[in-house]
């Protein structure tokens, strides 16, 4: 088991190393970022050249690559061209907003998705199930950039209940979190419904019924508990999908997290900063995958023998 975990961690570092290298070359091969950022800002050729020398962009790319890998390995992610601050500090400033948004969305998924999925399974074929099927189908097809503006139109513009955008007040988080939660909410409740329906046919449910246990006890303790494993897998995978989703959702609502920051940074060609964000995001994805793999291996010994 220790060998398995050690191999997985090593593989994760290899993936991150390749991602960091690929990002560096993609962002640097097509031209130098200093010119890209300062173009059209009124900076003179001399000023651009001076900044290039100051930030080291006048040296050959292979030297810069070596230095980049060396400093990243030592926790130094370089300086943002646009803001002139260490990019790691700027990422850390934005990261809490994304974590709060993601956490709220996951909470919505769990709190609403589990009861809805259980109810849809219990009332299979009834009106609730039919509404459920149509609603989840809809929720899984309508893209973020349609849901978000429509929520703004209803709850912010027409009803005036919630702020249009930004992160200033505590109610600002409601609309972006709902937008981000919609797809995983539909998926999780659908998976739970299907998984519940499979447990209904199991012998242990029949046994529980014949013992005369009450319906809530059977449903919650005997069915839902056994139906939950596939749901946990889906939630883990959906967290990875949500990391990508935050870029669009945060941009829709001008939520000051890492997602909207990534977009602004790429639009402004501030590549040292973009590089840092991409490495961070990749590290998050790789870590989640690693944890899922290890948990699986702990639960199912067959996996680690492969």
């Amino acid at each position: 088991m220790i060998r398995f975990i050690a191999l997985r961690i090593a593989a994760a570092f290899v993936v991150l190393f390749v991602v960091a290298s690929a990002t560096f070359f993609v962002l640097n091969l097509t031209g130098d970022p200093v010119t890209a950022v300062l173009q059209g800002t009124g900076a003179s050729q001399e000023e651009i050249a001076a900044l290039k020398v100051e930030l080291g962009y006048d040296r050959p790319i292979i030297v810069r690559y070596g230095e980049f890998i060396w400093s990243v390995a030592h926790g130094d992610f370089g300086v943002s061209i646009r803001y002139g601050q260490p990019s790691i500090d700027m990422v850390m400033e934005r990261l809490p907003y994304t974590l709060i948004l993601g956490g709220t969305a996951i909470a919505i998924v769990v709190v609403l998705g589990l009861p809805i999925g259980i109810l849809a399974a219990l009332f299979r074929g009834g009106w609730f199930d039919r509404v459920f099927s149509a609603a989840t189908g809809l929720a899984q097809s309508v893209p973020h950039f349609v849901v978000g503006p429509l929520l703004i139109l209803f709850f912010a513009v027409l009803l005036g209940w919630l702020p249009v955008s930004g992160g200033a007040s505590s109610s600002s988080i409601i609309l972006p979190a709902l937008t981000l939660a919609l797809y995983p909410l539909a998926l999780v409740s659908r998976v739970l419904r299907a998984s519940m329906l499979e447990t209904i046919e199991q012998d242990y449910v029949l046994t529980a019924e014949s013992k005369g246990l009450s319906k809530p006890v059977i449903v919650l303790r005997h069915m839902a508990r056994n139906a939950l494993l596939p749901v946990l897998t889906v939630i883990a995978l959906q967290i990875i999908a949500m990391i990508g989703g935050t870029i669009v959702v945060e941009s829709i609502f001008s939520w000051p997290g890492l997602g909207s920051f990534a977009r602004d940074t790429l639009l402004a060609s501030d590549f040292p900063l973009a590089q840092t964000i991409i490495i961070f995001v990749a590290a998050a994805v790789v870590t989640i995958n690693l944890v899922v793999d290890i948990v699986y291996a702990l639960v199912d010994p067959r996996i680690r023998l492969k």
Binding site: V15, L16, V19, T23, V26, L27, I240, A241, I243, G244, G245, I247, V248, A262, R263, L266, L267, S269, A274, I278, V281, A282, V285, V286, N289
Partner: peptide
């Protein structure tokens, strides 16, 4: 390891 949107956005930029 890099979410699709971020990959696409980076290359497009």
């Amino acid at each position: 390891a890099v979410p699709g949107v971020l990959l696409v956005l980076t290359l497009a930029a």
